[in-house]
Amino acid sequence: MQVETLQNQQATWGGLSDSIEEFSDWQRRAGREFASEEAELLAYLTDQLQAEGAPLVGVRFNHPVLGLLSHMSEKGNRMQELMHAYLAIAVTQDCEPAQRLIAGQRLQPGLHPNYVAETQCYGAIQPE
């Protein structure tokens, strides 16, 4: 009997991050009601960004913003995609990237096919 792994953040990011809390688990833990979907997603993304960024507390960058952006692009880490999803909501009220991230889909274009197959993050945007 073959066991099918459901696509989720743990399947996509488990090998790269130990700070993953699935959205449904976070909702149960938070136990709060929010004024809108956007507010709830922003609260979740903020918590996840804090967890992912914990190892960077006290790290000194040459420039606070550019250094952080450089770190995120060099590491190709989950923090970069959390920030993408957060800014999409904060700037354009677009919840789609956050919903895709929560579903375990990568937002980064042009991922290596072996990574996509191994992690089952099939929603990765492909370059046109």
Rank of each mutant, 00 (worst) to 15 (best):
D94Q: 05
I89W: 02
A103V: 04
Q108V: 12
E38D: 15
Y122A: 09
L69M: 13
N77M: 06
T119Q: 01
L56V: 05
D18K: 12
Y122D: 13
D47N: 06
E33G: 13
E81R: 01
L45C: 02
R32F: 04
P113C: 06
Q7W: 06
L42A: 03
D25N: 11
L101A: 04
Q9C: 14
P109M: 07
F34I: 03
D94L: 05
P64D: 07
L111K: 02
L49S: 07
G53N: 12
P113H: 08
E22A: 14
E40W: 02
A103L: 05
L66V: 09
N114H: 14
R60H: 15
G104Q: 00
C95P: 06
M1D: 12
Q10H: 11
Q50R: 07
H84V: 11
G15E: 11
M72H: 08
N114I: 12
A117V: 06
L6F: 11
A30R: 15
W13R: 00
A43W: 04
L6G: 11
Q48S: 14
E33K: 11
A103S: 09
N8E: 03
A85C: 05
A124T: 08
Q108K: 15
L41N: 02
M83C: 12
V59Y: 10
R60V: 15
Q48W: 05
R29A: 15
G14T: 01
A124I: 02
G104A: 01
L42P: 00
G15F: 06
R106D: 05
S19M: 08
M1K: 12
Q48H: 05
A54S: 10
L111Q: 08
V59F: 10
E81F: 02
E33A: 14
N8L: 05
C121Q: 01
R106M: 07
G110S: 11
A85W: 02
G14N: 01
A90Y: 09
R60L: 15
Q27G: 02
G123I: 01
A51F: 03
C95G: 04
E96V: 13
Y115F: 14
L41Y: 08
E37N: 10
E37I: 07
R100K: 12
G76M: 13
E118R: 14
E22Y: 06
S24G: 02
V57Q: 13
H63S: 12
A54C: 07
L6N: 10
Q120I: 09
G14W: 01
Q27E: 13
A90W: 06
P64G: 01
S73F: 09
Q2D: 14
H84P: 01
E37M: 07
Q108C: 09
Q80K: 14
R32L: 15
M72N: 13
H112P: 07
L111V: 07
Y122H: 15
D47F: 03
Q48R: 14
Y122R: 13
E22L: 15
A85V: 01
I20D: 03
E81C: 02
E33W: 09
R60Y: 13
Q108N: 08
S73I: 08
M79A: 15
G58M: 04
P64I: 06
G15K: 10
G76Y: 08
F34N: 00
P64F: 08
L45N: 01
Q7Y: 06
G76T: 10
G110E: 08
